[in-house]
Computed example of a mutant assay.
Amino acid sequence: MKVGEYLKEQREQQGLSHAKLAKAAGVSKRSLIYWEQGRDMSVEVADKVLKVLGATYKIGA
């Protein structure tokens, strides 16, 4: 599963809107939507969003 798909899954499981998660992570709602659709994001930004979600994502083998 790609990181954007994982973020979307976690956000939906927690009942968070794009706006609430974006605000809590300090990113724009538009960027969050783009990332969930598969656009590239930096590791630093992914870390911020994952921390808000209380989730982890393993990169690599």
Results as ranks from 00 to 15, higher is better:
residue 53 L to W: 13
residue 48 K to H: 14
residue 50 L to F: 06
residue 47 D to W: 02
residue 23 K to Y: 05
residue 32 L to S: 00
residue 47 D to M: 02
residue 31 S to D: 07
residue 41 M to R: 03
residue 26 G to R: 03
residue 31 S to C: 11
residue 43 V to S: 11
residue 44 E to N: 14
residue 50 L to N: 01
residue 21 L to D: 14
residue 40 D to G: 09
residue 21 L to R: 02
residue 24 A to T: 08
residue 51 K to P: 12
residue 30 R to K: 09
residue 60 G to P: 04
residue 55 A to Y: 00
residue 55 A to I: 06
residue 38 G to V: 04
residue 50 L to Q: 10
residue 28 S to W: 00
residue 34 Y to C: 00
residue 34 Y to T: 09
residue 54 G to F: 15
residue 19 A to D: 13
residue 29 K to F: 11
residue 54 G to N: 10
residue 51 K to V: 05
residue 20 K to C: 01
residue 19 A to P: 15
residue 45 V to D: 09
residue 60 G to K: 02
residue 60 G to Q: 13
residue 30 R to F: 14
residue 28 S to V: 01
residue 48 K to F: 04
residue 29 K to S: 08
residue 30 R to D: 12
residue 41 M to Q: 06
residue 52 V to R: 02
residue 44 E to I: 06
residue 31 S to R: 08
residue 17 S to K: 03
residue 49 V to E: 03
residue 40 D to A: 03
residue 29 K to E: 12
residue 47 D to H: 01
residue 24 A to G: 06
residue 60 G to E: 14
residue 59 I to T: 02
residue 43 V to K: 07
residue 40 D to C: 01
residue 27 V to S: 05
residue 27 V to W: 00
residue 24 A to D: 15
residue 38 G to N: 08
residue 33 I to M: 02
residue 20 K to L: 13
residue 20 K to Y: 03
residue 26 G to T: 03
residue 38 G to T: 15
residue 44 E to W: 11
residue 21 L to G: 07
residue 24 A to V: 13
residue 43 V to A: 07
residue 32 L to F: 00
residue 25 A to W: 09
residue 52 V to Q: 12
residue 45 V to N: 05
residue 53 L to I: 04
residue 36 E to W: 05
residue 50 L to E: 15
residue 55 A to F: 06
residue 31 S to W: 11
residue 57 Y to E: 01
residue 26 G to S: 05
residue 57 Y to P: 04
residue 47 D to N: 11
residue 17 S to A: 09
residue 36 E to Y: 06
residue 39 R to Q: 05
residue 26 G to K: 04
residue 49 V to S: 10
residue 35 W to K: 02
residue 29 K to Q: 14
residue 21 L to S: 02
residue 19 A to L: 11
residue 56 T to C: 11
residue 28 S to P: 04
residue 43 V to Y: 10
residue 51 K to Y: 13
residue 27 V to H: 01
residue 48 K to R: 15
residue 38 G to E: 13
residue 42 S to V: 03
residue 49 V to H: 10
residue 40 D to M: 03
